[in-house]
Each structure stands twice: as structure tokens, then as C-alpha cells.
Design a protein around this nucleic acid. Structure first.
Lengths: 161, 161
DNA sequence: GTGAGTTATCTCGACATCAAGACACATTCC
DNA sequence: GGAATGTGTCTTGATGTCGAGATAACTCAC
């Protein structure tokens, strides 16, 4: 079975036969899979009326557990965006009624972002759709190989933690 | 060895123990690795005075082989951006002297974008730096496992081609 | 050849993001 | 208690991208 990256490596090999292209075989596939996954996510979420960036924020709140509250600062560290972006995102999510802003009782500078009942329903539905879409992409890979793949990816990712 | 995704899966498991989170073990790692790789690319390219988007365009031209010419349309299909973006990118690359625009002798509507000598030198240097950075990320993974990983990723990616 | 439909590129307005800085409040140390 | 420093959030301006539309030129059937 051949994929896009085999073509890419072949083209580079023709032009730069002096270089060891083994890293490309791994990382170019990771980049491309990430791009395809983004599209699959977008589709799965669109069916539930939310967008990817909305899911990222709502999911962080959902994972925090009841009462589903986090500070904007914590949210931006979880989602790896800047503070300006997070202000904008929370504004729009609040306008849609999926989250609400509360004053932090412990710190008068602070704010807490809390998932509403509607927000919880939205993120739960979207997450189930995402899992279904991802399971689909994995359908052809036997369990044993999937586990092996997860393990290999973990050892690449672990140094970053 | 534990990574960020183990924490993520654990958190979801606490909240949604009813769901099979196996797909997350694969795809969340792929997304995160892609993000880390982007940062590593940025660093490697910065040392050579170019940016990631510049590399994407220059590399497509470089891979095409001598005389290093492609149409804007072909370039946007290779790099997956829209036409407005490509016009902007070619403008800026031409202003920096890394590419030049030529009329297409075969089609008077058309334009060819050609790598200059400076552009070729820039992309070759940047590609070597990228390979070195990627090889670094793979340093701890034995050859055999790297090959195995590439193979598993290929079987995930192949359906998209 | 002429006209309809297609293809290639560029232009332009809208928008989300980023990065830097402003502002308010907390905390610490003297 | 008061000054200096730290922390948390929001505001602002610049930038790159997208997407729709405009223009020019090609192709093919008649």
C-alpha cells in the first residue's frame, strides 16, 4: 500500500539523493494525518452545531469535572492560545449561552468560566461524534497494531512533557 | 513512560467512563506531535532566515526538479492553501528575490513561478536543517521501531490518497 | 469564426489570531 | 501601613488567511 508521502520521499530522493530521508517518513505522515484529522473533527462537530475551537474550550471545562469551572488563565494554558484569543472565545461562547462568566470568590481580579447545562450537552454530544469519527479512521487497523502505534507515539511525545 | 495524553485520557475516563477512548490514544498524540513538530520546524527555519510558509512554497518548487518552475495553481494544490493566499505568498517571496514570476509561454492567462538561485540555496539549507531537527526528535527511537512506526502511519494515511 | 462554458490568476473585504501593553487587584517584604 | 513586584484579564493594532467575485484567456461545438 502506497501513500502520498511515498511520492514525496521519492521526489526528494531524486533531487537530494545525498540526504537520509528516514525522518520524513515519520513526520510528514504525522503532519498530514493531523491535517486530515482536523477536517474529520470539523465535520463531526459541524453536525452538532459547534466549531473546533468551541469544542477545545468546552472540552477543557468538561474534563475538569463538576462544577465545570476554570479560570481564563487555566483555559488558555490548556488550549495553548493567547489571552486575547481566549477573551474573544469566551465572549462568543457566552453569547451563545454555552458558558457563563462568574466572579472568582477567592480573588477579586479573577473570573471563572463555567459550563452551562446547554454547554455540557453540546460538548458531550460532540465528543461522542468525534470518537465515532476517529474510530472510523481506525477501523482497518487491528487492535494489536493500534496499541502498538499508540505506544510508539507515546515514546515520541514523552520528551515534550 | 507517561505523556500528556495519558493524563487527558485519565480525565476523560473519570468523566465519561462509558466511552471507549482508544481512538484518543492515537489521534490526540498525532495532533500534539504535529504541533510540536511545527515549533521545531519554525526554529530550524528561523536559523536559516526563512519561515514555514516560505519553505512550503520553495520546497514544492525544489521537488519539481530543474528548471524549478510551477504554476500558482499547481502550487496551491501542493500546499493546500487558497488562491488569494498563494498570490500573497508569491508576492512576498518575489519581493525577497527567492522566486520570480514568468509568463507561461504555453498559456497567456498563466504564470510560472520559478525558484531563483538564491531561493534554491535557501530551501536546500533549510531542508537540511529540518532533517537534522527531525532526526533529533527520533534519536531515542531504534531504527527498527522507526520503520515500524512509519509503516503503521502509512496504513492510516493510505485511505486518504 | 462566434459564443458558451471553463480555467487561471488576482483583488478585496471580513475575520480570527497573535503579541504587546493597559489596568486592576493581590501579595510580599521592609 | 505602604511601596514594589507579581498575577489575571481585557484591549488594541497588525497580520495572514479565507472565500467570493472580477478579469482575462483558453477550448470546443456548431
Amino acid at each position: 500500500m502506497r501513500d502520498e508521502v511515498d511520492d514525496l520521499v521519492e521526489a526528494w530522493g531524486r533531487e537530494r539523493g545525498d540526504l537520509d530521508l528516514a525522518p520524513v517518513e515519520v513526520f510528514s505522515r504525522i503532519s498530514r494525518l493531523a491535517r486530515h484529522l482536523d477536517l474529520a473533527r470539523r465535520d463531526a462537530f459541524t453536525a452538532h452545531g459547534i466549531e473546533s475551537w468551541e469544542f477545545d474550550v468546552l472540552a477543557a471545562l468538561r474534563r475538569a469535572g463538576s462544577p465545570y469551572e476554570l479560570s481564563p488563565g487555566r483555559l488558555l494554558r490548556e488550549t495553548l492560545v493567547t489571552s486575547g484569543t481566549m477573551t474573544n472565545r469566551v465572549d462568543r461562547l457566552a453569547a451563545r449561552g454555552l458558558v457563563e462568566r462568574l466572579p472568582d470568590p477567592k480573588d477579586r481580579r479573577g473570573v471563572l468560566v463555567r459550563l452551562t447545562v446547554e454547554g455540557k450537552a453540546a460538548v458531550d454530544g460532540a465528543f461522542e461524534a468525534l470518537l465515532a469519527a476517529e474510530a472510523d479512521l481506525l477501523a482497518d487497523l487491528p487492535d494489536k497494531q493500534r496499541t502498538q502505534l499508540a505506544g510508539l507515539l507515546r515514546s515520541l511525545l514523552a520528551p515534550f512533557s
